[in-house]
């Protein structure tokens, strides 16, 4: 079964560290604009973007370029946020994201059966001191979402925030260790989310993948662009209508792409579907 993939976008190293350690990720290269980490199996990728919207957008785009399964990965922005709607340390699943002074709102997809509270979030360009709001606030989520939603489906993007500061405990008192502990305390939840996300991503990867035999044929014969699209479609039809039956016999004695396409189509068009067969 194809493995899914999760791309984590995190602003600060202390926020990322619990995930890096838990998922056994290693720094891939120091040459990239933002440090990128990945585990050995390639199921988890992480970028440390830096603080603020420009960094979040740029970090997300860098990870998108680096991860080979970026298209079908689940994209997660996790980090700390300010607000007075709950106690410090509470984790929220963000269901709407606005940007300061903008009217447009993003509504991230909420995975079903995730038992944590939802919250609205507003992204600002600078740290906020007015905690008297019915939403929480950060400095990255909008830019992360805005960047990634252009590249992957909305259902594959999630934002989680842990409350780190409020009117009683200001941001200035936050230390690296505090931040590390706030995220560490949520690892159990993140792991349960990760399992669901991996399944969804794996399914999507499989749906978008080319069948193995496609590459064999493409390497053996010359297919034009149109013929390549036709081949993809015919192989998928073949696998549905003649499951388990090899395409090798179709290739025998065929000397051109055109002959192969014609032969596959001829066989498929003759099939009367047996609706009793599951």
């Amino acid at each position: 079964m194809a493995k899914g993939c999760i791309c984590w976008v995190v602003a600060l190293l202390p926020e990322a560290k619990p995930l890096i350690e838990k998922l056994e990720m290693k720094l891939l290269s120091r040459d990239t604009l933002h440090p990128i980490y990945s585990n050995e199996t390639g199921t988890d990728w992480l970028v440390i973007s830096g603080v603020g919207q420009l960094n979040a957008a740029s970090g997300s785009a860098t990870l998108y370029q680096s991860c080979p399964k970026a298209n079908t990965a689940i994209w997660v922005n996790i980090g700390i946020a300010g607000g007075s709607i709950a106690r410090i340390g509470e984790l929220f699943y963000i269901n709407s994201i606005r940007k300061e002074h903008k009217t447009r709102t993003f509504y991230p997809f909420i995975f079903p059966n995730i038992k944590i509270k939802n919250a609205s979030l507003v992204t600002y360009d600078s740290p906020q001191k007015n905690y008297n709001q019915d939403y929480i606030f950060d400095m990255e989520a909008w830019a992360f979402y805005e960047t990634i939603q252009k590249r992957v489906n909305r259902e594959f993007i999630a934002v989680f925030k842990v409350l780190s500061d409020n009117s009683e405990a200001s941001m200035k008192s936050l230390t690296k260790l505090n931040i590390f502990n706030l995220i560490s305390a949520k690892l159990e939840f993140l792991e349960s989310f990760r399992i669901k996300a991996q399944t969804l991503s794996g399914d999507e990867f499989r749906r978008q993948s080319n069948p193995e035999v496609f590459d064999q044929l493409i390497n053996k014969f010359h297919f034009t662009f149109t013929q390549t699209q036709q081949l993809k479609s015919l192989i998928k039809r073949w696998q549905v209508l003649l499951p388990g039956k090899s395409l090798n016999s179709v290739m025998e004695n065929k000397e051109s792409a055109k002959a192969i396409l014609g032969h596959i189509k001829e066989i498929l068009d003759e099939i009367e579907i047996d609706w009793d067969e599951t």
């Binding site: 269901n95 709102t105 509504y107 997809f109 079903p112 939802n118 939603q149 252009k150 909305r154 969804l200």
Partner: peptide, 26 residues
């Protein structure tokens, strides 16, 4: 379920970059 208030259904419905199959499940 806590309702989420929006201005217009078009903010969500029929936008680009949505996954019909995932939405069909949930």
């Amino acid at each position: 379920l806590s309702p989420i208030y929006i201005d217009h259904y078009g903010e969500l419905f029929n936008k680009k970059n949505q996954n019909f199959r995932v939405q069909k499940s949930f």
